[in-house]
Simulated assay, not measured.
Amino acid sequence: MRVLLTGAAGGVATLLRPRLRRDGRVLRLLDVTAPQALAEEEVLTGSVTDPEAMAVACHDVDAVIHLGGHSRENSWAETVEVNITGTQTVLEAAQKAGVPRVILASSNHAVGFREVTEELPAESTPRPDTFYGVSKAAIEALGSLYHSRFGMDVVCIRIGSCFERPPGVRGLATWLSPDDAGRLFEACLTFPSPGYRVVWGVSDNTRRVYSLAEAEALGYRSLDDAEKFAAEITGPAPTGAAAKYVGGPFTTTPLGIPN
């Protein structure tokens, strides 16, 4: 089995790569900056916005994990070009190459203006909080289109925050541990015929407000909880919009300014 990872030099991909290694599986890595290859890895240099590079990258691939793109707020032009047009380029190349499954990295910011409630469903309709959030809502729509038009299996993972440790107080709710990320992406890779799905990418945190039912239906089982870091994380509790909305402080940051 050969799995293509776009954005392979980025933070999430760096955490995932060792956790997705399996006997008989080759990870093909694509990024504008070539990461150092480990055993059973292939490295390609190119942009997700380049149709020719993506055609080469998708050749003889069984699944694509699309992590490439701007991971934070950026200008509208950059966000459209890299995140939205880049995702369409990836999906089109995958479709033409006959790749049966694509996993898209979406974000909690696609629904950042949803109010914080218990067990927010993964398929809540978009309420983005930033241009970045708009781009993630758009890639979910593109994934739906390519599934409906071409029968491709597409799973969109609305990632909370995937780091070695929770990033601050808000992260105690949004954290996706690296090990749980490996378990979640593995489930999305191997579940038989998922069709089109949207799932939350979070651990089973004590302070979680996101439903895990949709991810668990694909076989995901979280074994981690951000609460083990709670005593080490200091700072004021969120207030105002940062406490009211899923997107937290991102609901009030300036639009289009790289951060």
Rank of each mutant, 00 (worst) to 15 (best):
V48C: 12
L142V: 02
F229A: 04
N259E: 14
L4I: 07
A94K: 03
A53H: 05
G68Q: 09
L142H: 10
R208Y: 08
L218K: 02
R149L: 15
G133D: 00
P238Y: 07
E216V: 09
L142E: 11
E73R: 13
E123H: 14
L44H: 00
L145Y: 15
P236K: 00
Y146F: 15
S222W: 07
G256W: 02
V155N: 05
H70Y: 14
G256A: 04
A226S: 13
P192T: 01
W175R: 05
V80S: 03
V48P: 00
A181K: 08
P128I: 01
T79C: 03
V99N: 02
R207N: 15
P192E: 09
P121G: 05
G235N: 10
A105E: 02
P126C: 08
A77I: 11
D224E: 14
T234H: 14
V32Y: 09
K96G: 11
R197I: 00
W175Y: 12
T130I: 00
A97W: 01
M54G: 06
Y220N: 09
T125I: 10
A105G: 07
V99F: 12
H59R: 15
S203P: 10
A57R: 00
S75W: 00
G151N: 12
P254M: 00
Y146P: 08
N74R: 14
N83I: 00
T33W: 06
E40H: 15
L172H: 11
A230E: 06
L16R: 02
P51F: 11
I84M: 04
R101I: 06
R22M: 09
P258F: 03
V154A: 06
M152A: 01
L91Y: 03
D60G: 04
L20D: 11
T206K: 15
I159L: 14
L67A: 01
